Amino acid sequence: MSAVVERLSRGKPVNTGNPFLEVSVINMGATLVLRWLGESAVQVPAQVLRVNCQCETCRANKGDYPYHSNPTTIADIRAFGLIGLRIRFSDGHDAATYCWTSLGALSV
């Protein structure tokens, strides 16, 4: 288990490369939590992230994403430069990149 995945599984913040932001995953990978410096945390469900993936393959197949009885969870996250995150999901999809603005817009 990588150090990032271990931190995620414990709900610990992960270094994003952005000094004004902490990222963690809660509910066994079901929810991404973003906390900007001086602001309250926002949550983004993993299923919402997966359905709204903007990678080339997902954009080409929009509307064809199958909903499973077992919801997709977040398996790993990595900083994507200083502009956002790259997320790997439990269904094996690993081309998902999200800028900070997109993540904020998807929050509940």
Rank of each mutant, 00 (worst) to 15 (best):
A3T: 13
V4T: 15
V5M: 13
E6T: 13
R7M: 14
R7F: 06
L8V: 04
S9Q: 15
R10Y: 14
G11Y: 07
K12I: 08
N15H: 11
N15T: 09
N15G: 09
T16S: 04
G17I: 00
N18V: 04
F20D: 11
L21H: 03
L21R: 10
S24W: 06
S24G: 08
V25Q: 06
V25P: 05
N27A: 15
N27G: 02
M28L: 13
G29E: 05
G29C: 05
G29I: 11
L32A: 01
L32Q: 03
L34S: 07
L34I: 11
R35L: 10
W36D: 09
W36Y: 14
E39L: 14
E39T: 08
A41D: 05
V42I: 15
Q43P: 02
Q43R: 12
V44P: 02
A46W: 04
V48W: 01
V48K: 14
R50A: 04
V51R: 14
N52K: 13
N52Q: 13
C53H: 11
Q54P: 11
C55V: 10
C55I: 06
E56Y: 08
C58V: 05
R59P: 03
A60N: 08
G63D: 08
G63V: 06
G63Y: 10
G63S: 09
G63C: 10
Y65C: 09
S69K: 15
N70S: 15
N70M: 07
P71A: 14
P71G: 10
T72R: 05
T73P: 01
I74K: 07
I74D: 07
A75T: 11
I77Q: 04
R78N: 06
R78M: 05
R78C: 04
A79G: 10
F80Q: 00
L82F: 02
I83M: 03
G84A: 12
L85D: 01
R86W: 03
R86C: 08
I87A: 05
I87H: 01
I87G: 00
I87R: 02
R88S: 14
R88Y: 06
S90M: 11
S90N: 11
D91N: 14
D91Q: 06
G92I: 06
G92A: 15
A95N: 05
A96F: 04
A96K: 01
T97H: 10
T97G: 10
Y98W: 13
C99Q: 07
C99D: 14
S102G: 07
L103V: 14
L103N: 09
G104F: 04
